[in-house]
Write a protein that binds this DNA or RNA. Structure first.
Lengths: 186, 186
DNA sequence: TTCCATTTGTCGTTTATGCAACACATTGAT
DNA sequence: ATCAATGTGTTGCATAAACGACAAATGGAA
């Protein structure tokens, strides 16, 4: 596992597994998908699956993270600071992701999806905060990232509950003043 | 190499190489395609190429054979005997193949394509003759297959030369009486 | 021509994948 | 409840593929 990320065999095999899982997710519920199904579809050996993933839940984690990251990748985190525009971008990316997932996959993913989204949000917020507040204490930035991630994720839950009322952009805008002032006074 | 044909790794790698070669054939002439180009496109190691193919000419051979076989596979050789209908099917398959190849690939393949087609024809004719004449001497069937393969291939050359005169079906039909009677009197 | 860069085959070593077998859990039908 | 079938996670060994290096061949440009 030293530099396994760059070995072409590893990249190919992981893609085969993930693509097969996504393919199967369009046909069955998660609870009905077995490791054997996946490896048969991917035409790889079952032992190879366990070389890359602990179990099927580990695979689910990584697939969802990756799909979410693709949504996030349209946002250029290098340039963007943590301001109104970037928060709106992130919020829209989350709601887009949830729409895509709930269309493609069947029920039973909800808690996992929630966790993935929040974890990824925390990572992204922490990274952006650190760029913006290089002088601050690290622990303080970490906690801020946690709170932001839970808050923004919660907002997405709330928006889905009343989704007919407003667009995601409008919805999150009403929370922007609170978030921004909090960030600035970290 | 004992049962390497069924090892999933081998099947995957060969497909990667062949697909990359076909892809590159659409962009460059054969003489400008290097082994390195292919392995780079396929994202496999160059040494792995030489594990499967002697050189780039060996690859060309096998790719063309395989593409031609796909054309032939639409004909059910298990059921069909060597009669008017199957000869027409085979002839049409050849002309279709040549049309497809000359559209996709650039010049310089001609002699190789000719050899491949004739060799495949010989194999197919021999197999069909052996089913039909189980009692005959083997050498006699082999020679018949050789003559048939050269004859039918030559007919395809002739048809391409005057291709506007008639459809391939009509064209080969005029030779059917000769071929059939010859086959029956092997 | 000479020089320099690129490609070609080949080799030895390391790593990833295939495969068969195993004990154990889960499931489904009778 | 039982039994058979299927899935899970793991292991040891066989083999394909990756990698880096090498000498030789090829092919342009000076």
């Amino acid at each position: 596992m030293t530099q396994s990320k760059t070995d072409p065999r590893v990249l190919r095999t992981r893609k085969l597994i993930m693509d097969s899982f996504i393919e199967l997710s369009g046909k069955k519920e998660f609870k009905d998908i077995t490791v054997k199904d996946i490896t048969t579809e991917a035409k790889i050996n079952r032992a190879t699956f366990y070389y890359h993933f602990e179990d099927i839940y580990d695979l689910l984690d990584k697939v969802l993270s990756e799909v979410l990251l693709i949504n996030f990748n349209s946002i250029d985190f290098e340039k963007s600071e943590l301001n109104e525009a970037s928060i709106i971008d992130i919020f829209v990316a989350i709601t887009d992701f949830q729409k895509a997932i709930s269309n493609r996959c069947h029920r039973g993913y909800d808690e996992t999806i929630a966790r993935i989204i929040r974890e990824q949000l925390e990572i992204i917020f922490y990274g952006m905060l650190r760029k913006q507040h290089t002088t601050e204490e690290d622990e303080s930035l970490r906690i801020t990232a946690v709170i932001l991630s839970w808050g923004v994720y919660g907002a997405s839950v709330e928006w889905r509950r009343n989704r007919k009322e407003s667009s995601p952009e409008e919805f999150i805008k009403s929370a922007i003043p609170f978030l921004i002032s909090g960030i600035e006074h970290v």
